[in-house]
Computed example of a mutant assay.
Amino acid sequence: MTAIETPDRETDYRVPALQRGLTILGMFNARERVLGMQDMAERLGVSTSALYRIVQTLVDMGYLQKAGRNAFELGPQVIADGFAYLASRDIVEVAMPELNALRDRTSLSCHLSIREHTDSLYVYRAFAPQRLTVNIPIGTRLPCHATALGRVLLTALGEAELGQLYQHLRLDDYPPPAPRTLPELQALIAQDRERGWVLHRSDYSTAIATGIRDHAGQVVAAINLSGADAVMDGPDAQGRFLQALFQSAAAISAQLGYVPRA
C-alpha cells in the first residue's frame, strides 16, 4: 500500500511573495546599503522578472527606495517602523531584568528613575535584602538637583534649558552638597555631563548613577547603585561598581536602539 504524502502544514501556510519580500529587506546591512535587482535575484535563486512586482510593492510602501538604475536601498518606512517599535517599549519592561541581574551581581540596591519637571520619579527598584541597604519605594519623587539620579537626568538639558527650568525655583533650602544657586547648578551639571556619571553621599549612604539613552542618543532615564558608605567607599569598590553600572546601562540603552558613536 502506497503511503499518501501530506503537505507540511507550516509550509502549506506560507506566502512565498511575503517571504521573499522580507528576505529582501534582511539583505541590507551596514556593509551592503545598496543592492541591485540582479543581486537580490541571485541570492533568492529566482529571475529578476519574478522579483519585479515584489520590489515595486516595497518601493510603493516606502520600505525600499531607488538608489540608481536598477539599484535600491532601504526606505524611510523601515526606520520609522523601527523607531516606533522602540518608542513603544516601556522603559521599566526593558530595564527590569537588567537591574535585577545588576543587584544580584553587586548585592546592592538598584533604582530606575525618569524626570518629571524638576523631580526624579522612581519607577522601579531592585531591592537588595541586606541589613544596611538603601530602599526607595516606587513612586517616590525627589528633587533632581539633590540626588545622583536626578543630576544625571538633568544632563539631558542644555545650559539655557536648565536655566529656564529653574529660573523661578529656590535652591538654597537644600543642604550641601546640593547646589544652592542656579549658576552653581549649571556648572555642576556641565561637569556631570562631561563625566557621564554622578556620585552622591547622604545619610551614611552613597549612590552612583548613570544615564539610559534612547535611539536618538538622548538621556531619557537614569539608573543607580546605592548602599552603605562602608560598602561603597574606596576607589577599588567604586571602580568595580561603576563598571557594573555602565555595563547594565549600555545593555538597556542598546535595547532602546542606542548605538554609541565609533
Score class of each variant (00 low, 15 high):
L142D: 05
P235C: 06
S248I: 01
V231I: 15
R9M: 08
D173E: 10
A95D: 05
E42H: 12
L199M: 11
S205P: 00
R131S: 13
R261P: 09
L182A: 04
A30M: 09
T48F: 00
G196L: 12
A250L: 01
Y258L: 01
A17N: 07
A87Y: 08
H200I: 03
L171D: 00
D60R: 15
E42V: 11
D214Q: 07
Q130N: 13
M27S: 03
L154T: 11
P183W: 09
A251H: 00
E159K: 14
V219T: 15
S120K: 00
S88T: 04
P7N: 04
L169F: 05
E10I: 13
V198D: 05
R31L: 11
L188M: 14
V134W: 05
S226A: 15
E10D: 13
Q65H: 06
L102F: 01
M96S: 14
D192F: 04
A160I: 14
L112M: 07
T155N: 02
Q19S: 14
F127A: 06
T106R: 03
K66R: 14
L142Y: 03
A221N: 05
M1S: 14
G36P: 12
S49P: 01
V134K: 01
V134R: 05
A249Q: 01
D192I: 04
L102G: 03
L199R: 13
